[in-house]
């Protein structure tokens, strides 16, 4: 397993070298693009601070992701179960996604206050939509012949749901979760913009408005690494537990 990461790490190192070389070669001013070494150095000096930000933002992301995944699964399953429910509620889901999350920010703060839960809510909100869509789609596409087979064994709705529909939909749910965890991270970061003092989103804001370019790029780099790590985690979960593809 470990050896499979070698090319990725090599690519990352290569990119950092290229970055450094280009900035030095063309004498790009620091406020346009700081050197890779300056950014890495900033990560070093701000390690404690960035570490705290990572811990906080990661907690928000994972809580929001977990809640969003569960809510999305529940709604997706309900929609797959009842077309009527889907017809009534799904347009509202689409509508809610068409509204930028920024517009909800003040509402979320009013409802949930300034603590971690308002960030969790935004992360969950962004995660839930793709999970809902893919859960519903995955369960709808369940092979009717396999349903008939289970029914012929005397299986009830609940048994068909857990033994057939859920595993059948899992690969498509997994695809949504991989997208959802990145959206959860974005949600947590954006959520912090609605007021807080700790977190990567706050570090991003501070760096942005004070034009502290090395810090800005440091936070962007850290966000990117977290995003990749979370995605890789989901990939690993998928490879280990959701490796099959539905046979039709």
């Amino acid at each position: 397993m470990r050896s499979t990461f070698v090319p990725q790490i090599a690519a990352l190192l290569g990119l950092l070298f290229l970055w450094e070389a280009v900035v030095l070669a063309f004498n790009v001013p620091a406020h346009v693009m700081p050197t890779a070494s300056a950014v890495l150095q900033d990560i070093g000096t701000g390690a404690a601070l960035i570490g705290r930000g990572v811990a906080r933002t990661l907690l928000e992301t994972l809580l929001g992701f977990a809640i969003g995944a569960m809510v999305g699964f529940a709604f997706g399953a309900a929609f797959a179960w009842s077309r009527a429910l889907e017809r009534v509620l799904f347009p509202l889901f689409i509508l809610s996604q068409a509204i930028p999350v920024i517009a909800f920010g003040a509402l979320v703060v009013m409802w949930l206050g300034n603590g971690i839960w308002s960030k969790v809510a935004i992360a969950a909100y962004l995660t839930a939509f793709p999970v809902t869509v893919n859960t519903c789609r995955g369960m709808r596409s369940v092979d009717p012949q396999r349903v008939a087979l289970l029914r012929s064994f005397g299986a009830g709705d609940w048994r068909v749901f857990w033994s057939l529909q859920v595993p059948f939909a899992l690969p498509s749910i997994m695809a949504a979760l991989k997208l959802g965890i990145s959206l959860g991270l974005i949600g947590a970061i954006v959520g912090e913009w609605f007021g807080d003092t700790v977190g990567l989103g706050i570090l991003l804001l501070q760096a942005m408005y004070m034009e502290n370019m090395p810090r800005l790029w440091a936070v962007i780099l850290v966000c990117g690494v977290i995003g990749i790590a979370l995605y890789a985690l989901m990939e690993a979960i998928e490879r280990r537990w959701v490796w099959w593809r539905p046979e039709l």
Binding site: I102, A106, M110, E192, W193, G195, L205
Partner: peptide, 20 residues
């Protein structure tokens, strides 16, 4: 007193008006 920091797109006026 709890100090609630703001951020972009957060309207302090409406948060006070709503009683938040």
């Amino acid at each position: 007193v709890t100090i609630n920091p703001g951020g972009p797109n957060l309207n302090a006026e409406s948060l006070v008006a709503s009683g938040s």
